[in-house]
Amino acid sequence: MSQMDDALREALRREAAPEGFAERVMAKVGREERQATKSDDLSHWLLAAFRRPQLRWATALAGVALAIGTMEYRNEAEKRAEGERAKDQVMLALRITGGKLRLTQAAVRRIQYAPREQ
């Protein structure tokens, strides 16, 4: 029993940390914090700005303007696609119309120039 006690005491004996250990740990913690802050920079900046009373309105307006701008851009893109589709349909419809008019004209000519039966 005393042998086991001795082994445990030896294993768990207090030992001084290597030199600079605390500084290295603190430096690593700081680095990780800075990285986390960088990834959320924009949202943090916006939140921070929103918390400042003098920037609150400006931040809100900038957010609204950004949302409106995005919506306008999407609407414009949709309208352009719809316009291009309509243009293609007009061209197809007029091509078919022209083709059928030509067919009709050819049929009229065939009858006009057909040899008459005696």
């Binding site: 091509r95 022209g98 083709g99 008019l101 030509r102 004209q105």
Partner: peptide
């Protein structure tokens, strides 16, 4: 209309 779009011109009666 018939003369455009690559189709010869139509002369309507």
């Amino acid at each position: 209309l018939g003369g455009q779009f690559g189709i010869p011109k139509v002369e309507l009666p």
